[in-house]
Amino acid sequence: MNSQLFLAYGPETLLADRVVETTTAALKAQSNDLVVESVEAGEIDDARFGDLFAPSLFGEARAVVIRNLQDLDSEMNPALLAYIADPDPTITVIALHKGGVKGKALLEALRKAGARETPCEAMKRDSDKIQFLRTEALSRGRKISPDAAKALVDAIGSDLRELANSLSQLIADTAGEITVEAVERFHGGRIEATGFDVTDALLEGRAGDALATLRHALDTGTDPVMITSALAGALRTLARVGSAPRSLRSAELAGELGMAPWQIDKARRQLPGWTGAGIAAAITEVARADGAVKGGGADPIFALERAVIAIARTRT
């Protein structure tokens, strides 16, 4: 292992930043006068490269953080490769790479030279995020209950950095194990919602939920246009499944309608409560809301809420 070369490989910037933090902290512990230089790989040219890697006059310890290694100008490749082959003992290099194969030669050279590599994979599954929260809590000497971790993931959702921040907030604000109650207290009722959640609630006759979800979706950054298109799509599916023969199984119908069997099953579950006239009126409402959202009306949010209420009334 080479203790002077570090590589953080993957798209999750929070984890990559962690690598930078822990590595520089460890170096600082060894020498107080550590100088940290941070640079975007895309900005490195001959002059900057010379600056970064010139031998130090006073021999103090230095760390060079190269962000977005994949963007390094290919003309700078030979210089960096040469450095990796023959590193300066006073400099620690921390290279951050977004993942993928760009800058393959550099990655290979770093790995061959024994750089310490930390994978920074994006966390897509909820279970991964829950696991992340638990280890994160443990590393701070605290515990978070599985339910609490799940509630937090539901509330904050996609962004890992935001999750980590919320966790440190919770750690600072509570004592002992972090419980569901604590999460609810700080993030009560907030959920990440999309147009599809709004649509599901509405088509299943939960008008109140639909309105609340609509607000959540808009507050968490869902574009109003995405909501009208989700509504239109779902109503279209409902109408087409509704006019198809009931005797057919969803798998048989799937090919004919060009839909997935689960879509058909879902529409069939939603169908009770809907008449042809109801669906027709609902589609008209969505069309009107779509026009209002695209500039025909003064307030997109009002138009959407109005449409949600009107559609809820078309259901019998």
Binding site: T228, S229, A232, R236, A280, I283, T284, V286, A287, R288, D290, G291, K294, G295, G296
Partner: peptide
């Protein structure tokens, strides 16, 4: 026609119209 000029999703505008023509 007005809805189309307003950039409403064309299929949605047509659907809404055809439903009214029934």
């Amino acid at each position: 026609r007005k809805a189309l000029a307003f950039n409403v999703a064309p299929l949605l505008a047509l659907e809404s119209m055809m439903l009214a023509l029934r």
